[in-house]
Structures are given as structure tokens and as C-alpha cells.
Design a protein around this nucleic acid. Sequence first.
DNA 1: CTACCTGCAAAAGGTTTGCATAGCC
DNA 2: GGCTATGCAAACCTTTTGCAGGTAG
Lengths: 125, 125
Amino acid sequence: MKYSKQRELVLNTVIENPVHPTADFVYSHLRSANPNISLGTVYRNLNLLADHGLIHKIAIPNGSDRFDFRTDEHYHMICDCCGEVFDVELDSLKELDSEIEKSTGFVVRHHDLIINGLCNKCKHK
Amino acid sequence: MKYSKQRELVLNTVIENPVHPTADFVYSHLRSANPNISLGTVYRNLNLLADHGLIHKIAIPNGSDRFDFRTDEHYHMICDCCGEVFDVELDSLKELDSEIEKSTGFVVRHHDLIINGLCNKCKHK
DNA sequence: CTACCTGCAAAAGGTTTGCATAGCC
DNA sequence: GGCTATGCAAACCTTTTGCAGGTAG
């Protein structure tokens, strides 16, 4: 991957904003200091960085994709009230892929798990 | 929910086609015998039927939503090769929601799990 | 120099919605 | 008769892509 200023900015934005930003968040965030950056470039770089394993792309049901600077295995919980995305560690899923392979015979490459509910701040409202 | 011919057709299509059809599948399928049915009506009815719990909506990362006549708890595996969607029973996830609630304090309403890989037909290619 | 990258704007899905008309109860 | 549903088409949102010019190595 050749160096580019825009790619560096995109990567740093994801790293410095652990809110699991969307492409549009990254774009808006960068726009103020870099009025010429384009949304297409942001998308291209987020996807390229994810393809190279430097960040992780999180597909959200009925919502925009989000990006995560953490690339180790963990899961995400989205609060239906405030929209915030939280990291969740689930040791019990370590064996999930091999369990599925054993019971179905499929070759598992990947699984996506998204949890919806209410976070600690919102559950008392 | 008031009766409508179109809603009945949409529901029957989902029930009679256990391929986890997309809205477009349902639309194309019905179009031949009902040339006037509209895609908007198909979407409205699929969503309405799902809201009323008669069918289940499956959000597919990077793909169209699919609909399932089965409403009991089970999961889905999508073959990256042929695109077919398979049902997977995972008893080990029965306790997932309560496990998450215990470790995080969140109120869990729902979780979505999609597995990607290769089915038994495709894995030998 | 050349391959890769950018900005811009248009296109491409997939899904929802506004409106006037039609149908259920 | 009134409320809900329909067909049609336009709008919407997010993401991708074609192109002509710019930049890293």
C-alpha cells in the first residue's frame, strides 16, 4: 500500500475515535481541517484498510457500516435508545465456528454477531 | 391486520419457498401470476408480517434482507460460493443473552448472528 | 515514468414514502 | 363510510464507480 495523506488521516480518525465511526462520521470529522477530502476517498480507504487488516469493518443490520480500530475477536452491542456501540467480550463463542463445522459439515470462514438492547445509562429511563 | 389478497400472496410465497426469499424474489415470483402487484406492496407486507411475528426478517451483511417462515430461534449460514442460506440450530447460544446481561449489565433485546462459509456441496470445489 | 491515488459527480443497489385510487368490513 | 391497502413513481440512504488530473516511489 502506497502512502497517502488521506489514508493516514482516515486511519488516525478511526484510531482516535473509539466510537466505532461510520464512513460519514470520518468524512465529517476530517472535512473541517481538510475541506477537499471526498467521501469516495474515505470509503475507498476504509475498505482498503479493512482489507489489509489494519481496521475492522462491522456490518450493522439496518444501519451504516462501522469501523473499529480493534482487530482482535470481540463483539458489539448497540443501544436501541442512544445508538452507542459497546464492545463485548464473549469467551463462550471461542468454539462457535468449530462447533458449527462439527454439527453441519460446513466450512466456516466468519461469523457476524450484533446484539441489540439497552445500555446501562438507558435502561433506567 | 385487515385482509388483503396481496398480503396473503406474500405470506404464502414465504411459506412455500423455504429458501429464505428476498423481497425481490417474492416480487418476481408473484409477478407472473399477478402482473399488477407492486414492489412497494411486497416490501410493506413483508415488513408488516414480520412486525406481527408471522414471519422473521433476516438482515444479511452486505446483502438484501431475507424473510423466513420459521419464527423459532435458529441461525443462518450463507454459502459464500453458491449463496444458499441454511438453517443452523445452536443450542450453545440459548444462554447467550443472559450471559451478556450478566457480564455487561445491558438489557439484551435481540441478537443477530450470520455465519459465512462453504456449504457441503461447495466445499469440495 | 508509471502505477496508484484523489476529487468530483454520477450511478447503483436496496428500501421507503407520498399520493390518488381501490378494497375490506 | 371510514380506515386501511394498493400501484406507481419518486425519493432516500448508503456505498461504489468512471473519469481526468495529481502524487508517491
